[in-house]
Simulated scan of single mutants.
Amino acid sequence: MATSPLPVFNSDSCPKPKVEKAMHNIFVTQPEETRQRKEDTDSHISAVPGTSRIPVAGVNTLKKTMVMRKRAELDEMDTRLALKQQQFRSCMEDLAHRRSELEKQKQQDKERVKKFEKFVAENEIKRRRALKKCEATQEQNALKQKEIEDLTEQLKQLRVRKERLKERMVKYKIFEDFLMQTLDYLPSIYCNNESESLVMPIIWRHETLSITHQDLLQRLEHMEAEVEQSQQQLGSMKQEHSIKQLMANKELSELQSELETLKERNKQAEVNLLMVQGVSREKVDEVGRLLMAINNLAQQCYLPAYGPLESMNTLTMLDMVKECILDKADTERRVKRLMGSASAVTTTAAVTDKRWRGSMKSLGSKTQIKSSSKVSKKK
C-alpha cells in the first residue's frame, strides 16, 4: 500500500503577513480623538523623507503575530503529521496482516505443491505400471496371435486333408460297394466269425502301417528342419571362420613386418658389436704386447731386493727396471773415469755409447709402458 508523502511547504504558497500601518502605543482605553491624533502624527512622521524607520514596539508586535501564526501552522502541521502517522500505522498493520496472509498463502501453496508432486509421482508410478502391463499384454497378444495363426494354418491343413479323404472315400466307394455286393453273393460259410478273424488282422496291420508311416513322415519333417538349422549354423560358422582367418592373416602380416624390422635392428646391432669388439681386441692385443715387453725387461733387470718376480705388479717392475738402468749408467760413468788410456777410452766410449743408446731406448720403452699402463688403468 503506497503511503501518501508528507506535504511540502513552499515559501511562495505560505501566506505572508500583510504589514499595515503600524499603530504604536495604542490602548483600548484611549479615546478615539487621541487615537486619531496619534495616527495623524505618525502619518505625518512617516511622510517626512528619511523617517521610514518602524518603532521597536510595532516590530515586536509584528514578530509576535508572525510567531503565533507560525505556531498555528505548526499545530496544524502536527495534527496533519499525527494523522499521517496514524495512517502509516494503519498501513503498516494492513501490511503486516497482508504479510501474514501471504505467509499462510505461501505455506498453503507449498503444501499444495508437495501434494501435487506426490500426485505426479503416484501418477508416474501408475503410468509405468500401466506401461509394463500394456507391454506384457502386447507380448501376450502377440503370442496369442501367433498361436491363432498356427491353429488357423493347422485348421486349413486339416480341412485340405478332410477334402482329400472325402475324395478318396468317393473314389473308393465303388470298391466298397463291389465288396459288399460280393459278400451278399458269397455263401453263408464265409460270413461267419472265422472270415472276420482272417480279415481283421490285415486291417489292423494296415492301420499300424499307416500310423508308422505318419510317424516316419513327421520324423522326416523334424529331421529336415534340424538339417536346415544345422546348415544355417554351418554357414554362420564358416563366415565367422573366414572373418577370423582374415584377422589372423592380418595379425600375421603385422607380426612378420615387425619380425623383419627386428631382424634388421639385430643385424645392425651385431655389426656395431663386431666393430666395438674389433677395436677392443686391438686394444687388448696392444696392452698384452706392452705387458709382455715389461715382463721381459723385468726378467732381464731383476733385482732380489724387490722380491719374487711373480708377485710384482707392473709399476713395481717398471721401478725395478728404472733402478737397474740407473745403476748401469753409474757403473759406466765410473768406468770412464778409471780408464785413462786412449784405446780404453775409445773402447769404453763406444761401449758406453752403445749402452747409453740401449738405456735410452729402454727408458723410452719404459715411458711408453707407463703411459699405456695409465691408459689401461683408466679403461
Rank of each mutant, 00 (worst) to 15 (best):
E111L: 09
K63G: 04
L198S: 05
K63W: 05
L234Q: 04
L291T: 06
R129F: 02
W204G: 06
S90N: 12
T352S: 08
W356T: 05
M77D: 10
L220C: 12
V160G: 11
H24D: 08
G364P: 00
L183D: 10
V19A: 14
V276L: 14
V271C: 04
E226I: 06
T137K: 14
L220G: 13
N60Y: 12
A57E: 14
E111G: 04
K64T: 07
F116W: 12
S372N: 04
K132L: 14
C301Q: 02
S242P: 00
V19F: 05
K263Y: 03
I54T: 15
K106L: 11
L309F: 01
M68P: 00
E39G: 01
P187E: 08
S230V: 08
P187S: 11
G58E: 13
P55Y: 09
F119M: 13
T352H: 05
T61Q: 09
P17Q: 15
C301F: 05
K132E: 15
L217F: 02
R355K: 10
A136P: 00
N272L: 08
L262K: 15
Y190D: 14
E147R: 07
D330S: 13
L246S: 15
T367H: 02
V227P: 00
I203E: 13
P31R: 10
Q107N: 14
A349H: 01
V19L: 14
T79C: 06
T3S: 13
T41M: 12
R219G: 01
C91P: 00
N249H: 06
Q36H: 07
A248F: 06
E163K: 11
R265Y: 05
L62F: 05
S52L: 09
Q154W: 04
T261G: 05
M292A: 15
T34P: 00
M68I: 09
R333C: 08
E286G: 10
I325E: 01
I174H: 08
E260M: 04
N10L: 11
K64C: 01
P201F: 04
L6S: 13
E286H: 08
E323D: 12
K283T: 09
Y306R: 03
L234A: 12
W356F: 06
Y172M: 07
L131Q: 15
T51L: 10
Q233P: 01
L326E: 15
E76W: 02
A130V: 02
R161K: 13
T346S: 07
P55E: 15
E139A: 11
P187F: 02
D353H: 09
T51G: 02
R265N: 09
